[in-house]
C-alpha cells in the first residue's frame, strides 16, 4: 500500500511543470473556454495544434495523455454516432441514404469536430492540471485564486486546510482499511463472494472501526495543531511564497491571444465550415 499515489501527477522537468500553479489553473480554464469557442475547421486545427504543443512542452509521454482519453471513449463514440445519424443538412449533402438511415455531410463534419473538441478538452485539462500539478499545489493555488471570496466571508483558508489534511490522511486511511480487512479475513470474514448486497454488508464491520479510528485521529490532530499555535488563517505566513514570473505571463497571454484569434476567425467567418 506504500505505493499509493494521489491524482495522476507525472514528475518531470518541463516548462509546464514549472509554471506558476495559479496561472496553470487559469490557463486550463481559458483553454476549456477556447475549445467551446471553436466553430470551424481552421480553428479546430489550431486548437489541436495548441493541444499538441502543450503535450510536447510538458514532456509527458504521449501514451500517458492518450490513456487519459480512454475513459471517455464511449461518450465520444455515442455522441459522434448521434451526430452522424441525427444531424440534418441540405438535401444535396446526403452521403448515405439507406433504409431508415440518412447521413448528411453535416453530420460527419459535426461528429469529427465533436471528437476533436472532446480530445482537446481532456488533453488541455490533464496537461495543465492533473499530470503536471500535485494535488497539494492545486489546493494552495485554489486558496490563492479564491482569495476575493474571503471578503464575502467564505472560509477559503479553512477549506484549503481541510483539503490538505484530507490529502494527508487518505493514504493513512487506505492503509488502515487494508489492515482491518486483513484482520477480519484472518477471522473468517468473506469480502469477495456472495451477492452485491451480501458483500456490501460484509463491509460494515470494516467501516465501523475505520470511522472510529478516523475520529480518534481527527481529535489527536486537532490537539497537535493547536499545540503548534494553529489559529486559523489570520496572521499566517507561508514558507513558499509564489511569484508570477515572465514565463507565466507568456503562457497566460498566449492562451488569451489564442482565444481572441478564435473569436476573430469566427466573426470574420474565416476557416472552412459546412453549416
Amino acid at each position: 500500500m506504500n505505493s499509493i499515489s494521489l491524482g495522476q501527477y507525472y514528475p518531470a522537468e518541463s516548462p509546464i511543470h514549472r509554471l506558476d500553479v495559479r496561472i496553470k489553473v487559469v490557463v486550463a480554464i481559458l483553454f476549456v473556454v477556447c475549445t467551446f469557442l471553436c466553430k470551424n475547421v481552421l480553428s479546430f486545427a489550431l486548437l489541436l495544434s495548441l493541444a499538441l504543443l502543450s503535450i510536447i512542452l510538458s514532456r509527458l509521454p504521449i501514451g500517458l495523455v492518450a490513456r487519459g482519453v480512454r475513459p471517455i471513449l464511449i461518450i465520444i463514440a455515442i455522441t459522434s454516432l448521434i451526430n452522424i445519424f441525427f444531424s440534418t443538412g441540405a438535401p444535396e449533402n446526403i452521403v448515405v441514404d439507406w433504409w431508415i438511415f440518412t447521413i448528411y455531410r453535416e453530420g460527419i463534419y459535426n461528429a469529427l469536430l465533436m471528437i476533436v473538441r472532446f480530445v482537446c478538452l481532456i488533453v488541455g485539462t490533464s496537461v495543465f492540471l492533473t499530470y503536471t500539478t500535485t494535488p497539494i499545489e492545486l489546493t494552495d493555488a485554489i486558496e490563492d485564486l479564491l482569495w476575493p471570496l474571503k471578503k464575502l466571508g467564505v472560509p477559503v483558508h479553512d477549506f484549503a486546510m481541510m483539503m490538505t489534511i484530507a490529502l494527508r490522511f487518505i493514504p493513512l486511511l487506505v492503509d488502515e482499511t487494508d489492515k482491518i480487512m486483513t484482520a477480519q479475513k484472518a477471522r473468517g470474514a468473506d469480502f469477495s463472494s456472495g451477492s452485491l448486497a451480501q458483500r456490501a454488508k460484509a463491509l460494515v464491520p470494516v467501516l465501523i472501526p475505520l470511522f472510529v479510528s478516523a475520529f480518534r485521529r481527527a481529535e489527536e490532530l486537532a490537539v497537535a495543531m493547536e499545540c503548534r499555535c494553529y489559529h486559523g488563517g489570520e496572521g499566517r505566513t507561508r514558507m513558499n511564497v509564489r511569484h508570477v514570473h515572465a514565463k507565466d505571463f507568456v503562457a497566460l497571454f498566449g492562451v488569451i491571444l489564442f482565444g481572441v484569434g478564435i473569436v476573430v476567425l469566427n466573426t470574420l467567418n474565416i476557416g472552412y465550415s459546412i453549416s
Binding site: 490538505t164 489534511i165 490529502l167 494527508r168 485521529r217 490532530l221 497537535a224 495543531m225 503548534r228
Partner: peptide
Amino acid sequence: NPDNQLVATI
C-alpha cells in the same frame, strides 16, 4: 502517534 500530528503532505 507520529501519523496524527503531521499536517502537510510534504
